[in-house]
Nucleic acid binder design. Structure first.
Length: 275
DNA sequence: CACGAGACCTGTTCGC
DNA sequence: TGCGAACAGGTCTCGT
């Protein structure tokens, strides 16, 4: 479930109290259960258990697709990968077989990392930059200007789609939002990054931001059995819409495979070969 | 440097 | 109904 809007939505839900759950900020971690120790990249499982005990959550933020839980001395970093979810639950609540990593809180609540496919990752580090240093810019930040996108596109000689999904180029885009952004920009995913004209670069910049903002407005997308909450899946223009009419021109959306990922395009709005 | 294939995992859905 | 294949929001590593 996790691209930038879904991860951001989860961060907000953890940071802020709701009628159902307390805020994570201010809570003290008193223990950890590691049902799938391979989730932990660093330090060792034993090191994580020892170091995290007693630390209080000071803030919850996001960088790219990473969730950053600021503690007194360290930062707990979680990457949800394909199937992860991070949420608060009362200690008494029954846990599913996929609630592998559980942080026990002094309040009696638990921070649970549920991850059926077990691809997710957990870090506990003093310097978060050791994990985040390779990430590209935040596409929704103030500083992300058309000029910066132009530089990124020009630095490489790659197809647009794999470049946009490269977290070192731009942080936060995944398979869904890349397709949605390219459709908004009316660009084919296989266009060479260095072949775009000024108007196309501006259109791509707008497309990226508007696709992400739309996702955020709907609290992200909930597709499979994973994730709850969001309903952006009901507003996809091309992703998963093979055989359906393009909402812009009515042409039938087609599916192809690019970089081993399903890719959805409108052949009319995003022509290939004719430009 | 750019790209494709394979690995890492489990669950759901689709076709026969 | 049953069973295997295909597929899933991500990233890493290896070979060309």
């Amino acid at each position: 479930m996790p691209e930038l809007p879904e991860v951001e939505t989860i961060c907000r839900s953890l940071r802020d109290a709701t009628e159902a759950t307390p805020p994570l900020v201010g809570q003290q971690i008193i223990g950890v259960r590691l049902g799938w120790p391979r989730h932990v990249v660093e330090p060792s499982a034993a090191g994580l258990r020892r170091r995290i005990r007693g630390q209080i959550v000071r803030d919850v933020n996001r960088r790219g697709k990473f969730i950053l839980v600021s503690l007194d001395r360290d930062t707990l970093i979680v990457h949800l990968m394909m199937s992860g979810d991070l949420f608060l639950a009362p200690a008494g609540t029954r846990r599913t077989p996929h609630d592998h990593t559980i942080f026990r809180l002094a309040s009696g609540w638990q921070l649970r990392f549920r991850d059926p496919r077990k691809f997710g990752r957990v870090f506990l580090v003093a310097d978060r930059e050791t994990v985040l240093e390779r990430l590209g810019p935040e596409p929704l930040s103030e500083g992300f200007r058309v000029k910066q996108l132009e530089l990124i596109l020009g630095r490489h000689k790659r197809a647009l789609k794999p470049l946009l999904m490269d977290q070192a180029a731009i942080a936060g885009l995944g398979n869904i939002y890349t397709d949605e952004a390219l459709h908004r920009a009316r660009l084919h995913p296989l266009r060479g990054s260095q072949t775009l004209g000024p108007l196309e670069i501006r259109a791509l910049w707008k497309g990226i931001r508007s696709a992400l903002r739309a996702g955020l407005r709907h609290n992200g997308a909930s597709i499979d059995w994973v994730y709850r909450g969001g309903d952006f899946q009901n507003h996809f223009r091309v992703y998963g819409q093979e055989g359906e009419p393009c909402p812009v021109c009515g042409t039938t959306i087609v599916r192809s495979v690019i970089g081993q990922r399903s890719t959805f395009t409108c052949p009319n709005c995003q022509p290939w070969g004719k430009n």
